[in-house]
Each structure stands twice: as structure tokens, then as C-alpha cells.
Design a protein around this nucleic acid. Structure first.
Lengths: 327, 327
DNA sequence: CTGAAAGCGCTTACAG
DNA sequence: CTGAAAGCGCTTACAG
């Protein structure tokens, strides 16, 4: 392995000069620069980043903490993070937290020791003590806001309003809202958004708590639909639960969208694979990941950071689980 | 930050002794051990892994290279890798290659410099020069085998035979086989498996090349079904293309499974969300990832490695896109 | 069983 | 503009 020392010798300068040249820090005369450049080329020298890290306490590695990469929302996010990170010369470590504070804490601790540069976190635990005064740049994604942590999220409340209105405009008279877990901020915001619109609509509505989980949602919706046969609209606060609802309807022989219209929330790719395709309030998941990564890297590199909260717009995607708007 | 030096001083021994104690390498007297242990506890000392890495050239980090984490096959794999890695005290860097040899090569190069300990790779590029004599432990997943690289894969050929037979047993008279890309080893093996069974069955069959991509598959199948209305069975060599086929059938008003039966391949979670649920030849994706990770870590830790090729069994999952077996 | 010392390969004040 | 030297925090022969 060729080291900075070899380069210095070959170029006839000191290692300090080589280091300055390599890092473009401090002064290096044109002459010295040329000699070093030549030596680097000839020796095919490549800087050892581990040795550098020991000094700088930086690694160009960031951590991405998600509850479970297997949940179809997160791969799209992870892809965006990875893409943008690569652009800036960073590499990303994937951590599945299972929403378990202990696991999260362990990851953060062990990676901090490895001089990881920062974290992008999707978690409800952002107020947990281990986030309180972490000596590392963090950006929160999708969920909870801690006063000190920049956050990027969709406008969940407005999005839910849009989704609700879509159902109303299409003539629904009795709407079932599939509310997500109460511990989840986005789920709560979506609930608020639903209520904002439904409250004054005079339309009958029911709210059921339903985890963002296919099979559970399928069961819950199946039993509700059996009892309340006049439900003609379902707004699910996640696409996965919407998929469960659709499946339940199919099983019961309820025709979608003729007898029952369904709107989901998230915009994951799976939505269009269903039959009929799922109408949904789509988040720009990729964009969320991309922004979060850029914000994090700016923080890491101490660039002045403008905002503290980034809201990504949401878009209604009309597919087959809703009818056309009534005139 | 407290260093090994502080511990040594406090314990009244040399740093060498502390290091030996910490690494459980070489002799340390009971007395010295106790003193060190106490000092470690009192000072809350934590070893600096970066400094260690500079010496050992190991980091307890592995790389996972997948074509695209957004493809629903890979999150399950990634989850398994991450879970098992964590168990052994390793952490994983996620790399999306887009099947691009240059990207792959870059990842390998930059991570090698960072003293990453090894790679798990899903790629068709395993015979590319940059894999030829990589000085790092590698395990190949799902795809191509290079003579020097241990591989874990499903029995694709047998699996395809099982899937084909499932269609035959259920009375299909004209079968469309959705063959994957010709550069993909697993796709080829599945094709062989299909042919093994269909060849001597006397059943009419067609083969269409079809990427593992939903929308493309949907289009391809839609146009084929319009022309050949007597096709009553489709075997897709991936679940995503099976989903496309199902959607096409739904669009055309062809009833599944009554007029057309469909079998997929992969066993990704999405299969059960479709209506009807997708019958598929399921790989044990999690197990594949888990085995690959264990094999890699054994290689990294120089433990003797028994096998060179690991085959994971495949299982037919009957769901709604097929009828019951004819008597 | 233990410690002094060299070494891993870089960065960074500091003096010139 | 440059170099000698200390330092980042560990590991590992080697001599005792």
C-alpha cells in the first residue's frame, strides 16, 4: 500500500505539503502542487479514509434509521437517501429500528463511536432522551418534531382534507375513516385533516383505528362492512390499509368503485398494481428523502441552514377505486 | 474523551495490557484484569473503533449491493441481512447498483478503502473483472455464480417445474410463460424448469420475454391476451410480472381464476394484497439473506467454511389466482 | 505475564 | 509557502 509518505518522498516535499495539496487546505506553491500531482499519479496513490477519519472524526457515512425497510413506504425513501448521499460522496448505513427505542439508541451509540457523520431518522421516539442532546446532526423524516431537529414531512393534514373531499365530491354518503395508530404523528394529522372536512359536511362517518398493516386492516374492514352495509366510501390513512380494505370488499363481493369507493394515503408503488388501481393521496416520498439528505449533509458540512421545517406537497392520484366526479 | 491511555494510568498498567484485556488476546493476570475492569467502569471507557480499524483493517461493516431496493424483492432480503449482521455485531451499508457495473465497481472500491469487511452482492456482473480478484470476502445472492464466490440461491429450476405443474394439474390447456430477461441467471433457470415440465406434457405453450416490471408486463400481457383468447394459464417468472398479468386480465374483463389462472414466482408480500391473492412459487427470501450473511461473516472471521453453494428450498403458495386441483 | 516502543496513515498547529 | 513534530487512539511484535 502506498502512503502519503511515499508520495512526499517521490515529490520531494513533506507529508504536510502533500496533505495540504490533497485537502486543498492551506498554501501550496504551484511547483509543489505539480510535483505532488505527478507523484500521486505515478504511484497511484489513494488516500486512506480511515486514517483521515481518526483525525477529522468524520467518515462521510450517514445512518438511516427506519422502522422496517420491509414496509413499502421505506424502500422509496431509502433509495432517495442513497442516491443523494452518493452525489455528495456519502454512503449510508441502513438501520431497522422496529420502533424500538432500545434498538435505536444502540444504533446511534455504536455508530457515533464509529464517527458516523449524522442520521436521518423516521421514528416516533424523537423526544426520547437519547435524542435530547445528541452531539450529531440529525434530520427527522415524516414524523414527530423535536424543537432542535429539522424535519421534513408531507402536509398530512391538508392531504387528508383533499382525500376526504375527493370522496365527498364523488357522492359518498357514509364514510369510514381508517385512522392509523394514535402514537403516530402523521396519523393524527391525517385524522385532523379528515375531521376538518367531514365535520361540516353533514355526511355520516365512522372512525376505526387500524394499524398500517395489510392483514389487520383486511380483517377490521371486513367485519365493519358486514355490519354496516351502507358504507359507500373508505378513506384509509395509509395505502397498505387501503389495500386491506379493497381486499375485504372483494372478498365480500362488494364492487369497487360502484358500491364502495376507496382512497388511500401514501402513494407507494403497490397502489397501481391493485385492481382496480388505488386512488390515493400521494406523498412525494422520493423528494422527502432527497431533501432530508441534503439538509443533513448541509448540517454536517456546517453550511448555514435556512429552514427548520420542510413541507413537501401532496398530490391526489385518481385511479380506479373512485368514480368520476358527480356533476 | 477517555482513551486507553487514561485507563492504563488509572489501572496502573500499560496500554498494552489494557488492550490485551479488552481484546481478550494474550495473557493478562487476574489482578491486572480486575484493575483494568474497574478503571474501565469508573471512567466509562469505550474503545474507539476507528482507531482500532486503522490497525486491524477491519470495521465490522459489510456492504449489501442490490440492483434497486425499491424492487419489492430486496427489502425483505435487506431486512434479513441487517438482522443477522446486527446479531454478529456488524452493521450494513446499502448500495443500489442499478445493475450498473460502473456503480458497483465504484462502491466496491470506495468501501474497500474504508476497510469494509465484505460484501453481499446481488448482481449479474459477478464475472466482471472487478470481481475477479477482489481482496475481500464476497457472497453472491440469488444470481450468477463465479467459481470463487460462495452463492446462495433458490432452486429456481425445480421451483419453476413446481409452478408449471400447478397450472397443468388445474387443467390449463394453453399456457403463457413470462420469461424474465435473458441476462438473468435465475430467469434462465426458471425457463429451463418450465420447459422441463411443459415439454413432455403435450400442452400448448407460448413464451414471451418480459422484464420484471409491473407496467411493462401489464402491457405485454394485455396485447397477448387480446390476440390469443384461448390462453387459460400464465406462469410469470416473477411476482411483479404476475401482478401485471393479473391487472391486464382484470382490465380485459377476463375472470381470474375461472377463465385464466396465474402463478407467479418470488413470494413477495405484495402477492397476498392482490385480489385475488397471487398463487406463487415462493422463495424464502429472508432465509436467503440470513444464510448469505452468516456465510459472509464466517468468511470474514476466517472460520472454516463448509460449503460453496447454498440452495434454499422453494414452496408453492396456493392463493386465489388458481382453482382447486381437478380430480 | 508485562511494558516500551513502533506502527497503522493521516491532519494540523506551529515556527520559520 | 513549507517542514518537523505531535497527535488522532488503538494494536502488536518483541524483549524481558
Amino acid at each position: 500500500m502506498t502512503t502519503i509518505r511515499d508520495v512526499a518522498k517521490k515529490a520531494g516535499v513533506s507529508v504536510a505539503t502533500v496533505s495540504r495539496y490533497l485537502n486543498d487546505s492551506g498554501y501550496v506553491s504551484g511547483e509543489a502542487a505539480r510535483a505532488v500531482a505527478d507523484a500521486v499519479k505515478e504511484l497511484k496513490y489513494e488516500l486512506n479514509p480511515v486514517a483521515r477519519s481518526l483525525n477529522t472524526k468524520k467518515t462521510n457515512i450517514i445512518g438511516l434509521i427506519v422502522p422496517d425497510i420491509t414496509n413499502p413506504f421505506f424502500p422509496e425513501l431509502a433509495r432517495a437517501v442513497e442516491d443523494v448521499a452518493l452525489t455528495y460522496g456519502y454512503t449510508v448505513i441502513l438501520c431497522n429500528s422496529d420502533e424500538n427505542p432500545e434498538k435505536e439508541k444502540n444504533y446511534i451509540e455504536t455508530l457515533r463511536k464509529k464517527y458516523i457523520d449524522g442520521f436521518i431518522v423516521t421514528s416516533n421516539q424523537l423526544d426520547a432522551p437519547h435524542y435530547a442532546n445528541i452531539p450529531l446532526p440529525i434530520v427527522a423524516l415524516d414524523r414527530a418534531i423535536n424543537a432542535n431537529i429539522p424535519t421534513v414531512a408531507s402536509n398530512n393534514r391538508e392531504g387528508a382534507g383533499i382525500g376526504t373531499r375527493a370522496l365527498l365530491e364523488r357522492g359518498c354518503k357514509k364514510i369510514l375513516f381508517l385512522r392509523g395508530p394514535e402514537e403516530l404523528n402523521p396519523a393524527n394529522d391525517r385524522y385532523e385533516g379528515f375531521m376538518d372536512v367531514i365535520r361540516h359536511s353533514g355526511i355520516e362517518h365512522h372512525v376505526a383505528i387500524c394499524p398500517f398493516h395489510f392483514t389487520e386492516s383486511e380483517k377490521i374492514v371486513e367485519s365493519i362492512l358486514q355490519e354496516q352495509k351502507d358504507i359507500d366510501g373508505i378513506f384509509a390513512s395509509s395505502d397498505v390499509s387501503a389495500a386491506g380494505a379493497l381486499k375485504a370488499a372483494n372478498t365480500l363481493g362488494i364492487s369497487v368503485p360502484d358500491e364502495l369507493q376507496i382512497v388511500g394515503f401514501d402513494g407507494i408503488a403497490m397502489g397501481e398494481m391493485l385492481s382496480p388501481g388505488l386512488t390515493t393521496v400521494a406523498q412525494d416520498i422520493y423528494k422527502m428523502g432527497a431533501i432530508a439528505t441534503r439538509v443533513l449533509i448541509k448540517r454536517i458540512e456546517n453550511q448555514t441552514e435556512e429552514q427548520h421545517f420542510y413541507e413537501v406537497p401532496v398530490e391526489l392520484k385518481i385511479r380506479g377505486t373512485t368514480r368520476s366526479v358527480e356533476e
